[in-house]
Design a protein around this nucleic acid. Structure first.
Lengths: 156, 156
DNA sequence: TATAGAATTGACGTAAACGTAAAAGGTGCG
DNA sequence: CGCACCTTTTACGTTTACGTCAATTCTATA
């Protein structure tokens, strides 16, 4: 009982039946990975962590629009610095039948905290940049002194 | 043959012979840790990694001015984001008899790279802050819509 | 002497997000 | 038929900077 993924007859190049037509109902892991710039391992890892739940054709994973939406959310979450645990916590509250108020509130709450963390990090980095620049100018000065004044002894 | 660390007769409170007089020649690990706000584990770890080399009285570590200077450098390095490996690499080049030109050059080189990294990180964080703020305002808007407009059905 | 407070070494645990084999099953094409 | 690819599961490895016991020893003090 193998599901047909696409209409036959248009088999591309040397790969399996998957066309580049995009907008398909199901994609397999390879397509999915390419499309979102992640590795296969990553997709399997996210699934293992309960963040994704692709359908199966036998043992082959089939990703739908829903999975793509979730993956986008995951990637956005990661981009803003959430851990996968956080992302999962938020996504787990999603209820297609409700207003998702709880989910939104949790997301907002976590976001505020994350924003604070990011701002602190920024401050730390600015601090580090300051200290580093400082040290660098000192080192440069030391190098200048060591380079430009060997006239006391024999010039060699 | 236990070395005397301080003049006797002034034993403080309940601790071992160590006075709070500061400016002493040798301090033990506990003092050292407090003074620089690190844990004992950290000091031993740094030693294990070849970053510190305290003297020993039997098995007891004794830290001198030199060790304090090195620790300060380590902490500065960490503050600006160097790995301990980097710090070690730079410190290993230190030669009390020379001009340390090589050391300074390496430090400067690493610093430039680190500065670049820090700036990139800053950009990433700024980006993340932007995205996050963006998402937050959207979520807030969604919450407002869900909260302030239940007039189509019975007002619960 | 009993006890409390330092100190020691050794070694496993942690966090995050995958990387990297390894061994095997399915499939269309020439 | 067999190769070239795609896919699967399992599971250990990686990285960094320590944390956290655990078992033991040393020392001074009450």
């Amino acid at each position: 009982m193998t599901m047909k993924l696409v209409s036959p007859g248009e088999a591309a190049a040397n790969t399996n039946d998957i066309p580049a037509e995009a907008g398909e109902e199901f994609v397999r892991i390879g397509e999915m990975a390419k499309k979102y710039g992640v590795t296969l391992r990553t997709l399997r890892f996210y699934e293992d962590k309960g963040l994704l739940n692709p359908h199966r054709d036998g043992s082959t994973r089939l990703y739908t629009r829903r999975d793509k939406a979730r993956l986008k959310l995951i990637l956005l979450g990661r981009k803003v610095g959430f851990s996968l645990r956080d992302v999962k916590q938020m996504m787990d509250l999603y209820d297609p039948t409700g207003t998702n108020t709880k989910q939104l509130r949790l997301a907002l709450d976590k976001s505020e905290k994350q924003l604070t963390r990011l701002q602190k990090q920024r401050a730390l980095i600015d601090d580090a940049i300051g200290e580093l620049s400082n040290s660098m100018s000192i080192v440069r000065q030391m190098l200048v002194e060591r380079t430009a004044a060997p006239q006391a002894s024999a010039a060699g």
